[in-house]
Design a binder for these strands. Structure first.
Length: 260
DNA sequence: ATGGTTGATTTTCAA
């Protein structure tokens, strides 16, 4: 049994619901993590998603943030909202178990600029994720951690490495170190298992015709634990929804697992 | 050149 697992920052599910439904029909993912739904739970469009064939759980708030998990191949069990033990007013995390595999969906803090309070929050938040996943891996060795990481892992993942360097938000040394520390628990970037090339991106700023010029970053990642690494058959980024009218600024990042 | 665009809620904030 194969499984396609995808991560998509939709930048308002209220606006993007038609795109989500179209893309579910086109791409046929088995499990999807959404970020930036920007919806209170009472306003989440659960019925429309269920009618598309997916079970869904969600953790949202008004105006900002908000995450959800969809599954059409196995119940979503042991649902966890937020990072255990980390007091966080922002709805950025939802996790669940599907067919014995732990799925963690993250909307990582953006961080605004180096040296700001939001940057400090980002680093504290990433450290809390590290400590949480270190524990959860003991219970669920088969784990996928996906989301909008708001970190470009290395120079291949940015359109202009001279601008996006260690002094810049999303590429600073402390951010990349925090990601590397999480990966050192035993996670691989699924995209890099199959694609060593530079210049493949998942996010393009709405401004300055960035998508048309491919001035992007790869900040949407799917990580697989060591127990799943050998089952990753393919991984990629779906550019098509970014070409649709009134798109999200992010494209879905996905991986395909063989029998697991 | 501190610009530009989008989304949710305003008389800006966050990305």
């Amino acid at each position: 049994m194969q499984m396609k697992i995808a991560s998509w920052n939709v930048n308002s599910l209220n606006v993007r619901l038609p795109h989500l439904l179209q893309w579910l029909a086109d791409f046929q993912p088995d499990v999807v993590g959404l970020q930036e739904t920007k919806l209170e739970d009472a306003k989440f469009p659960a019925a429309a998603i269920q009618e598309a064939g997916y079970e869904v759980v969600f953790h949202g708030q008004k105006t900002y943030n908000g995450v959800a998990l969809l599954s059409r191949s196995g119940a979503l069990q042991d649902v966890q909202c937020g990072i255990p033990g980390f007091d966080d007013p922002q709805a950025r995390v939802i996790a669940a178990t599907v067919n014995g595999m732990r799925i963690v969906n993250l909307y990582v803090v953006n961080g605004q600029d180096i040296g700001t309070e939001k940057y400090d929050y980002k680093l504290r938040w990433l450290a809390a994720v590290h400590d949480w996943l270190a524990e959860d891996l003991k219970r669920w060795p088969k784990m996928v951690v996906m989301g909008d990481f708001n970190i470009a892992p290395d120079a291949r993942d940015v359109h202009d490495p001279a601008v996006w360097d260690q002094t810049h938000i999303l590429t600073s040394s402390a951010e990349r170190d925090a990601l590397a520390r999480i990966q050192s628990l035993g996670f691989s970037d699924a995209f890099r298992l199959h694609h060593p090339d530079a210049g493949v991106f998942s996010w393009w700023d709405y401004r300055q015709a960035a998508f048309r010029r491919n001035l992007g970053l790869r900040i949407d990642l799917t990580l697989v634990s060591d127990a799943l690494k050998n089952t990753v058959q393919e991984a990629g980024i779906e550019r098509t929804p970014r070409t649709w009218e009134r798109p999200s600024d992010h494209a879905p990042a996905w991986l395909q697992l063989a029998a697991f």
